Simulated assay, not measured.
Amino acid sequence: MKFNLRPATPDDLPFRLALHNSLFPDNPSTLADVQRQDDTRRADLVHRRFIAEVDGQAIGQGVYAQQEWMYHPQKFSVSAQVGREWQGRGLGKLIWTRLEEEVRSLDAIKLFASVREDETRALRFLTERGFAEEQRERESAVALADARLDGLEEAVKRVQANGYELTAFADFNIPDKEIKLHAFDREASQDVPRPPDEVFTFPELARYWETIHANPNHDPSLWFVAIKDGELAGLSQLNPIAAQPDVLDTGFTATARAHRRQGLALALKLVALTEAKQRGYKRVKTGNDSTNAPMIAINDALGFAEEPAWLWMTKSGL
């Protein structure tokens, strides 16, 4: 068996897609999605991908990269993946050895990796290499046929009585609405739970909207906002998934600091889920930091059922 690790090329996109979909069947992607991720990646950030081959056949990949949304020049996300039929043969260890050599040459001080809690082989692989859980993302989903949406009318009346208007972002017709949403997101994101000692590197206005508009699946009629006196007070986003046409993924749900405890998050979630059901979508997925008790409570009340969590694993002191 001849093992080889070479730099990835554009010709590897179909293999990368097939590998992803075989390893993560619950979160499938499309070739267009993979291509877009490559096309929109910032060229000034370190990103290296290697394809692992056995006797000339692609069987896995290794990746390390600086993170745009949580940037530090000496901190890298890492991933060593091997097709399931090739696992258990020591090939992941060979990929990892190369990744570790590369990030050490860049004076890395911390590595990040993500793994689903029920992927015991992958979790053991990381743990054996000194990674420890630093953050947990609680995943959940609801079948819209079973969602508890009967509180919609009452929730909407409550926020309207306090002077709020609920509308789709697509119908929020003011010239600077993209500027307003960017500013809203920048402020609200500061309160999102994140790993200790890490800070968000929030993108500037042009970059923020560049990545959104590059996605042909983006649908602003499925982003819902709460408005008061012409200002954004709350947001709840649903995003179509190209590989799962009847499923939606929840984006950011948040309330501006000055408008919290008004029932906006619940009302916006109810509006969004009701609209999704009316359009014929079957299922909605979401993820929340396990410490975000208020949002988890809202999702539980709406009928979301817990699924295996994603773990944010880290290793320091290389």
Rank of each mutant, 00 (worst) to 15 (best):
R84M: 13
R84T: 14
E85W: 01
E85Q: 15
E85P: 04
E85H: 09
E85K: 09
E85D: 15
E85Y: 01
W86K: 09
W86M: 12
W86V: 09
W86G: 05
W86H: 15
W86I: 11
Q87N: 03
Q87V: 14
G88V: 13
G88Y: 07
G88F: 11
G88Q: 12
R89T: 00
R89Y: 11
R89L: 12
R89D: 00
R89V: 03
R89E: 08
R89W: 06
G90N: 09
G90K: 05
G90D: 11
G90Y: 08
G90P: 10
G90A: 08
G90E: 11
G90V: 10
L91P: 02
L91A: 02
L91Q: 04
L91V: 06
L91R: 05
G92T: 09
G92M: 12
G92A: 06
G92I: 13
G92Y: 07
G92S: 11
K93T: 14
K93L: 09
L94I: 06
L94W: 03
L94F: 00
L94Y: 00
L94V: 10
L94H: 11
L94N: 06
I95L: 15
I95S: 02
W96V: 06
W96I: 10
W96P: 08
W96L: 10
W96D: 06
T97I: 10
T97Q: 15
T97G: 07
T97L: 13
T97H: 09
R98N: 05
R98D: 03
R98E: 12
R98L: 14
R98Q: 13
R98S: 01
L99A: 03
L99C: 03
L99D: 02
L99S: 03
L99Y: 01
L99G: 04
E100I: 08
E100R: 06
E100V: 08
E100Q: 11
E101A: 13
E101F: 02
E101P: 01
E101K: 10
E101C: 05
E101D: 14
E102Q: 13
E102T: 04
E102G: 08
E102V: 05
E102N: 08
E102M: 04
V103L: 06
V103C: 09
V103P: 02
V103A: 07
V103M: 05
V103F: 00
V103I: 12
V103W: 04
V103T: 12
R104S: 09
R104F: 00
R104K: 15
S105F: 00
S105D: 09
S105H: 06
S105K: 12
S105T: 06
L106D: 05
L106H: 11
L106P: 03
L106N: 04
L106Y: 03
D107I: 07
D107F: 08
A108K: 07
A108L: 07
A108D: 01
A108H: 06
I109K: 05
I109A: 02
I109Y: 00
I109G: 11
I109L: 08
K110M: 13
K110W: 03
K110P: 00
K110C: 07
K110L: 12
K110S: 10
L111E: 03
L111P: 05
L111S: 04
L111W: 01
L111R: 07
F112E: 10
F112K: 14
F112V: 13
A113Y: 05
A113I: 09
A113L: 05
S114Y: 04
S114Q: 13
S114D: 14
S114R: 12
V115F: 02
V115I: 14
V115R: 10
V115D: 07
V115N: 09
